[in-house]
Amino acid sequence: MAIEFNRIITLLRKERGITQKQAAQELGISQAQLSHYEKGIRECGLEFVVQIADYYNVSCDYLLGRSAERSGQTIKVEELPDAGGATSGSIYRGSVLPTMYKKLIENSLDILFDRLDQCRDKRVVTSVSNYLMLAVYRMFRRLYQAAPGNVASMFRVTPARWERDADAAMFLQEGELSATMAGENGACPDPAAFEMNTETLARDYPRHATSLMNLIKNSEEVIHKHNA
Rank of each mutant, 00 (worst) to 15 (best):
M139V: 15
S95E: 14
D54E: 15
A135V: 12
A53M: 01
T87G: 05
R120H: 13
G72Q: 00
V58H: 02
T74L: 13
C44H: 05
N107F: 08
F48S: 00
K76T: 11
P81F: 08
V128E: 09
S127K: 04
E47K: 08
S67N: 00
V50L: 11
G45R: 10
S127I: 03
Q73F: 03
M100A: 14
E69C: 11
I111Q: 10
V49A: 06
P98F: 07
L97H: 12
P81H: 11
D61N: 09
M139R: 13
Y92I: 09
S67D: 06
E47Q: 13
V136G: 03
K103Y: 06
V50Y: 10
P81Y: 11
E79K: 07
A135T: 09
E43T: 15
L46F: 12
M133R: 10
D121N: 09
F48H: 04
M133K: 10
Y101L: 15
K76M: 05
I105S: 03
F113E: 13
E79N: 12
E78R: 10
I91R: 11
P81Q: 07
V136Y: 12
E106Y: 12
L104Q: 04
L80T: 07
Y101G: 03
M133L: 15
K103R: 13
A53P: 05
V128N: 05
R115P: 03
L116R: 02
Y55L: 08
G89H: 11
R70L: 14
L46V: 14
Y56C: 08
C60I: 06
L64D: 01
E79V: 01
M100T: 06
G89K: 10
D61A: 15
V49I: 15
E69S: 09
D82I: 11
G84L: 10
L63S: 05
L132W: 04
A86W: 12
G94D: 03
A68I: 05
G45A: 05
Y55Q: 07
G45S: 08
E43R: 15
K102V: 00
S129F: 08
Y101Q: 07
G94R: 01
Q73L: 11
S59N: 01
S129R: 07
I91A: 06
G72N: 04
Q51V: 00
R123Q: 15
L97R: 14
S127F: 08
N57K: 13
I105E: 09
S71D: 07
V96D: 10
A68Q: 00
E47M: 06
E78I: 13
V136E: 11
Q118T: 08
D121S: 03
M133A: 14
D110K: 14
Q51T: 06
Q73P: 01
L134V: 06
D61T: 02
Y56N: 07
E43D: 14
E106D: 14
S67A: 15
S88R: 11
G45L: 00
M133N: 12
C119V: 10
A53Q: 02
D121Q: 02
V77W: 09
R66E: 13
A83R: 11
T87F: 14
S88Y: 12
D114R: 12
Y101T: 04
E47F: 01
P98R: 06
